[in-house]
């Protein structure tokens, strides 16, 4: 991956929330999953949102990923409000500018490794030659060259998550959002994945926002935000991340 030109404007806000609130109605009761969250992810960030189960981490990630809509407040992407955007406009924004890594990898089982990574490029209608080049480069970065034709069920958990990371990066998004990326992996493999993300952040200036309850992930963060009961309880700036 070429070092992105975004690195030269490190510190530019990519994602911002203003009074972000999400509540659900369960019978007679209203549950506030998120409560007036204000948060900014800037270019080059490696931020980790940490909190226990049910604290609102995944709800926050869903809002930031533009796959769920807030009850109140606003999510700004590159300074642009997203609340009034249609489903189709949000989908276009996601396919071009947001990379997603899921806890359970969420690869398409009938597609090969290369085809899984290629999928977002098909959505952006990237020319065939460019697609092939990008897929090869991303797979090399995540250490899966030679695995192009394998199916997901022929890979280990760590390899699958690497494929998911390659898929998230292939469109050169402004930000990659990862939801518990190490939760389904053993600790050694989880460490490898986090080192991979950290390397991509350090070497290629990819902006990451990782949501996790795994304390070992915090070691890789530049910023750690603690969330509890739907509220950001505090933020810890850690400066330079742990060397890989």
């Amino acid at each position: 991956m070429q070092r992105s030109s975004f690195c030269y404007v490190a510190g530019t806000p990519v994602l911002e929330t203003q009074g972000l609130t999400k509540h659900y109605t369960l019978g007679q009761e209203t549950v506030r999953a998120l409560d007036r969250v204000d948060f900014t992810a800037v270019q080059g960030d490696f931020a980790v949102v940490n909190g226990p189960s049910g604290s609102g981490k995944t709800t926050l990630l869903n809002m930031l990923a533009l796959i769920d809509r807030p009850s109140e407040g606003e999510v700004l992407f590159e300074g642009r409000p997203t609340r009034r955007l249609s489903e189709g406009e949000l989908a276009l924004l996601r396919r071009e500018k947001i990379g997603l890594v899921f806890q359970t990898f969420n690869l398409i089982p009938v597609l090969s490794v290369a085809e899984n990574v290629e999928y977002p490029l098909l959505l952006t209608k990237t020319p065939r030659g460019e697609r092939r080049g990008r897929v090869a480069a991303r797979l090399e970065e995540v250490g899966l060259s030679g695995f192009e034709k394998r199916r997901p069920d022929e890979l280990s958990g760590g390899q699958r998550q690497r494929v998911a990371v390659a898929r998230a990066l292939v469109t050169a998004p402004r930000i990659v959002l990862a939801d518990e990326p190490t939760a389904n992996l053993d600790s050694a493999t989880g460490r490898q994945i986090m080192e991979l993300l950290q390397g991509l952040n350090r070497d290629h200036c990819v902006t990451f926002l990782v949501v996790t309850h795994d304390p070992s992930v915090l070691d890789y963060a530049q910023r750690v935000l603690t969330i509890r009961d739907g509220r950001i309880q505090g933020e810890e700036k850690r400066g330079a991340p742990r060397p890989a």
Partner: peptide, 16 residues
């Protein structure tokens, strides 16, 4: 259904 959720999260529109 989960796969539909995945591809839509990746930016696939409903019509697609």
């Amino acid at each position: 259904t989960r796969e539909v959720g995945t591809i839509r999260a990746l930016g696939t529109r409903r019509g697609e």
